[in-house]
Design a protein around this nucleic acid. Structure first.
Lengths: 120, 120
DNA sequence: CAGACATACTACGACAGTCGTTGCAACGCC
DNA sequence: GGCGTTGCAACGACTGTCGTAGTATGTCTG
């Protein structure tokens, strides 16, 4: 098992995508590549998942889209993050820290039961 | 935001439940209480989610059930973890470490962009 | 110049897990 | 007798992901 199952990361796809838009607009294929690369091939987002996330997030006002032709003349749909999107991203980051802390109370490092220590 | 949204923890409900069965059999209501308590009220699993998890996991062979009456004579359905369940739990623990590492590459501590450092 | 491959995106229906709601039944408590 | 807690089951709705398929352009290779 060296890849991540999708239902685990579900709920963070949007966050991941928004992260990659923080600095500059980008488009589907590039984002897909970046996720793959930055995760060392451990997570490869499905195209349908990605594009449906775009649609959903645009509807929610987290991103906006515009069409632009690339150097070679091909059309691309670029997405930019909005202020709402930035706020949402930040929220999710905070939520992540909480979630991580909570889940780890139910996770044992080696798959063995670790009894809660005092001062936990 | 001081509670966890469900789609974030989705994919770890089974793991959490199995964790609580590692030492001894338990039943729905008690597990629900334990999750609530151990998470400091930050995560409260829905009843329907919990009981449908039981059904699913029993079908998958991760747990087995038996009925027993409590002190007061009320009937309860207890669940025990199986060896398959323990193996699954262990797997999920390992997967968690990987997932955590990957997600954190897309999370910035204060919601601000942290550029990847060399040697990352 | 044909065919393969990468790029870039859209549409459709299926599926799994969660959730809201409802209902029921037994017990304790005031 | 009504209310809250315990303990569970059944139903249908909804959301996000996924498999599949299709379209279209550009590049590379033989």
């Amino acid at each position: 098992m060296n890849t991540i199952s999708s239902d685990v990361i579900r709920g963070y796809n949007d966050t991941i995508i928004l992260y990659l838009l923080l600095d500059r607009p980008s488009y589907g294929y590039e984002i897909s590549r970046m996720i793959r690369t930055l995760s060392d091939e451990k997570y490869v987002i499905k195209e349908t998942t990605l594009y449906s996330a775009f649609t959903r997030m645009e509807k929610n006002g987290y991103i906006t889209s515009f069409s632009r032709s690339a150097e070679n003349g091909k059309r691309r749909t670029y997405y930019s993050i909005t202020d709402t999107g930035r706020a949402y991203y930040k929220e999710k980051c905070e939520e992540w820290n909480l979630t991580k802390e909570v889940i780890e109370r139910f996770i044992s490092p080696g798959g063995m039961r670790a009894l809660p220590k005092a001062g936990n």
